[in-house]
C-alpha cells in the first residue's frame, strides 16, 4: 500500500503505453507484481485504453452524397480528383473509401478482399475504371483519369491498357443517346486503341425491360454484367478503381 502512493499515475500511464525505458520497465514489473492495488490500477488503465480503441474501431462513415462540405465546391472537385489519383497507387487503399451506392459494390469489395488475401498483385499496366453513378463530375473524372493515364503511358512509351466499365447510372456515359461526352469518347477511342469500353449487360436489360431504348456508342462491349467483368479482370490481375 505504501508503494502504491509513491507510484504516480503518470508513471503507470507511461507503463501501459510502453513509454518507459527498459530499466524503469523492469522496476515497474517488480513493483506491480508485489502490490495488488497497483495491479488493479494497471488493469483499470489497460481496460480504459482497450475501450477507447474499441469505440473507434469502426467510426461511422460519412454519407457522401449528403455531405455539405466546408470546402468550396471547386475545391471538393479537386479533392475528388486527388483522392482518385491517390487510389491509383494501390488497390489496397481502396477499402477505406466508401463510394457505396449499389448492392453489387459489396460484392466487389468482397472480391477485392479475396484477391488481396491471395496476394495477387495488380498489374500496373492494366486498369479498370468502374463508373456506377451518373453524376457528370464523376463521369468527367473517369474520362480525365483514363486520358491522363493513357497519355502519360504513351509519353513514357509504356504499354497501358485501360477499360472503362459502366453500370447503373454510370451507363449514361456509354449511351449514344444520353452520354454528355459522346464526342470526346469517340475521339479518345481514335487516339488510344488500348482503351476499352464495357457496358453492364444487366443494366442494359433492366433499362430495356422498362421500355427505354438503349443505344450504345460504337465499339462498346457488353459484358453479361459489370460484376462478371470485374471479377474476370481481377482474376487476370487487373487493377481496379471506382469513380
Amino acid at each position: 500500500m505504501k508503494q502504491d502512493q509513491t507510484i504516480s499515475d503518470e508513471f503507470l500511464n507511461a507503463f501501459i503505453d510502453d513509454q518507459l525505458d527498459p530499466a524503469e520497465k523492469s522496476r515497474a514489473f517488480e513493483l506491480i507484481e508485489q502490490d495488488e492495488s497497483l495491479k488493479a490500477r494497471v488493469c483499470e488503465l489497460r481496460g480504459l485504453k482497450a475501450r477507447v480503441r474499441h469505440a473507434y474501431l469502426n467510426p461511422p462513415q460519412p454519407a457522401r452524397a449528403a455531405t455539405k462540405s466546408w470546402l468550396s465546391g471547386a475545391l471538393s472537385r479537386q479533392a475528388l480528383a486527388a483522392s482518385l489519383f491517390l487510389a491509383l497507387g494501390s488497390v489496397s487503399g481502396w477499402f477505406a473509401h466508401n463510394w457505396t451506392g449499389y448492392g453489387s459494390d459489396r460484392e466487389v469489395m468482397r472480391l477485392l478482399q479475396a484477391v488481396q488475401r491471395n496476394d495477387i498483385g495488380g498489374d500496373p499496366r492494366k486498369l479498370m475504371i468502374h463508373v456506377g453513378n451518373s453524376n457528370p463530375v464523376r463521369l468527367a473524372t473517369a474520362l480525365d483519369e483514363a486520358e491522363n493515364l493513357l497519355a502519360s503511358a504513351r509519353h513514357a512509351k509504356r504499354p497501358m491498357q485501360v477499360e472503362i466499365i459502366a453500370n447503373g447510372g454510370g451507363l449514361d456515359l456509354l449511351r449514344a443517346d444520353a452520354s454528355p461526352y459522346a464526342r470526346r469518347i469517340v475521339s479518345m477511342r481514335e487516339k488510344y486503341p488500348n482503351l476499352d469500353l464495357t457496358a453492364c449487360g444487366q443494366t442494359v436489360r433492366n433499362l430495356r425491360a422498362k421500355g427505354v431504348e438503349v443505344r450504345l456508342l460504337p465499339d462498346t462491349g457488353v459484358a453479361s454484367s459489370a460484376l462478371d467483368e470485374i471479377t474476370l479482370r481481377l482474376k487476370q490481375g487487373w487493377g481496379y478503381i471506382k469513380v
Binding site: Y56, P59, P60, Q61, P62, A63, R64, A66, T67, K68, S69, W70, L86, A87, G89, S90, S92, G93, F95, A96, H97
Partner: peptide, 22 residues
C-alpha cells in the same frame, strides 16, 4: 492513401462528426 482510414478515425474521435471528419 493507406493512412486515410487512420486519419479518419482520429479526425472522427476529435470531432464526432462523420462529414466534418471526412
Amino acid at each position: 492513401e493507406q493512412s486515410r482510414s487512420k486519419l479518419y478515425r482520429v479526425a472522427y474521435s476529435w470531432s464526432h462528426d462523420a462529414a466534418l471528419a471526412d
